[in-house]
Design a protein around this nucleic acid. Structure first.
Length: 415
RNA sequence: GGAGAGAUGGCUGAGUGGUCGAAAGCGCUCCCCUGCUAAGGGAGUAAGGGCAUAUACGUCCUUCGAGGGUUCGAAUCCCUCUCUCUCCGCCA
């Protein structure tokens, strides 16, 4: 949620900022809703004050045994108008909140401007260079990924991994969790189902409901561990005096991929279910951009350790996610596609999520919204296919990077 | 699934119709005292919002799990829901 006070005071600036990410803010509508709400609130509160005062008098009269007839009339008159105003205020407040809940986060001044991904900025590339030889894709390389089996079990956009390949994914997850823990992130095991409040807190609801798997009126499958991890501290005043709070979790992620029909239909690139290790931080506002660099560097380090070719991209305003003010994407080289594909996304959400989820800390006894950040470290499914495609020997086996060999007890796996 | 108990501020926990945004303790902040002891004393300390405002101060409203109801007036009474705990049953 953006800061309404800020919006009130700087409508033109906010509007321009949001325009840069492709959102047309209806300022007139905001000002009207805001004004209506506040004037209704004022009259409702005046009536409430009056009622409270009369009730007190009423009580005093009763105590002395005096007649209350004179007050009865006045109180009843107030009650009916008060009910009316309270209801109207409630409606206006809801309407304003509904409007606000659909507005995306402001774009950080440091994010490049541009209307779509072609304006994203290349930040750096790995020392490891991509192989430019056209390659088979992961489905062609190994027989241990079966989308046919998965479609029998469930449907399209799922996969079954067999034997060593399933083990390799498990090794990746273990490796990533270990690294996150070493970097100071506390490992958490969390539910894979989240309620509406949680999804509102991180920004998936109400606007992106169609991207989620809804399993009941109240429950949804999580699209990322960012949701449970960030909501760990929903409605809390947390203690940041010992530094930022850092969490990690491995979870499956469930996405309906509505609106991506015909996109990445082959293989494991875009699935309804995939494994990911997520890192999340709660930090003081002044620290958040530093924390974003740190998180990005952490994810980047994993790719270095895995010896995969990658690049770091800074998303432009038009490509940013709803809740993010600034995002770095890590993209890994996929030889079969002859291009880099996203394998991690690290975002600074500033106080956008903490406002929605009411996560604050004491800043000189002043309750202040924290800044929240999240990042993938990394998407395991995509890391798996990157390993298969980049480490294929062209004949019969796939090399296992050194850092994984302890987990999988082998230097290669057969295709 | 059955039976029972409960949900109050950062935490523990009192509070069954007005004097309660709420005792007491812990924690935290500030001050004082002491200076051999992880001692003692005092004050302050819920959140959100409106008005006002350069700030400070102020003032009003809402909130005691959520929603509804009764009442002039609800933390307190009634209804519905959610969640937590205990016991029994079942179960990975």
């Amino acid at each position: 949620m953006i800061d309404t006070n800020y919006l009130r005071d700087n409508p033109a600036e906010v509007s321009d900022n949001l325009k840069s990410r492709g959102y047309d803010l209806d300022i007139d509508k905001f000002q009207k809703l805001d004004q209506v709400k506040r004037s209704l609130q004022q009259t409702a509160e005046e009536l409430q004050a009056k009622r409270n005062q009369l009730s007190k008098e009423y009580g005093n009269l009763k105590k002395t045994g005096a007649s209350t007839d004179s007050l009865d009339v006045e109180i009843n008159k107030i009650k009916s108008t008060l009910n009316d105003h309270e209801a109207k205020f409630k409606d206006a407040d809801l309407e304003l909140n509904y409007f606000l809940s659909y507005i995306p986060n402001l774009v950080s001044k440091s994010s490049p401007l541009g209307k779509n991904e072609t304006f994203n900025k290349l930040v750096r590339q790995s020392a490891k260079e991509p192989s430019l030889n056209p390659s088979l894709d992961h489905l062609e390389i190994t027989s241990k990924i079966s989308t046919e089996l998965a479609s029998k079990l469930t449907g399209s956009r799922f996969a079954v991994l067999e034997g060593e390949l399933a083990a390799l994914q498990r090794a990746l997850i273990q490796f990533m969790l270990d690294e996150a823990t070493k970097a100071g992130y506390k490992e958490m095991y969390v539910p894979y189902i989240a309620n509406r409040d949680s999804l509102f807190g991180t920004g998936q609801l109400p606007k992106f409901e169609e991207d989620l798997f809804k399993i009941s009126d109240e429950y949804y499958l999580i699209p990322t561990a960012e949701v449970p991890l960030t909501n760990l501290h929903r409605d809390e005043i947390i203690d940041l005096s010992n530094g930022p709070l850092k969490y990690t979790a491995h979870t499956p992620c469930f996405r309906s991929e509505a609106g991506s029909y015909g996109k990445d239909t082959r293989g494991l690139i875009r699935q309804h279910q995939f494994e990911k290790v997520e890192i999340v931080q709660f930090v003081e506002p002044s620290e958040s951009f530093k924390a974003l660099e740190e998180m990005t560097a952490h994810a980047e380090r994993l790719l270095k350790l895995l010896n995969l070719p990658y690049q770091v991209i800074e998303l432009c305003s038009g490509d940013l996610g709803f809740s993010s003010a600034k995002t770095y994407d890590l993209e890994v080289w996929l030889p079969s596609q002859n291009k880099y594909r996203e394998i991690s996304s690290c975002s600074n959400c500033l106080d956008f999520q903490s406002r929605r989820a009411s996560i604050r800390y004491k800043n000189n006894s002043q309750n202040t919204y924290v800044h929240t950040l999240n990042g993938s470290a990394l998407a395991a499914g995509r890391t798996l296919i990157a390993l298969v495609e980049n480490n294929y020997d062209g004949k019969e086996k796939i090399y296992i990077p050194e850092v994984l060999q302890d987990f999988i007890k082998s230097k290669t796996i057969s295709i």
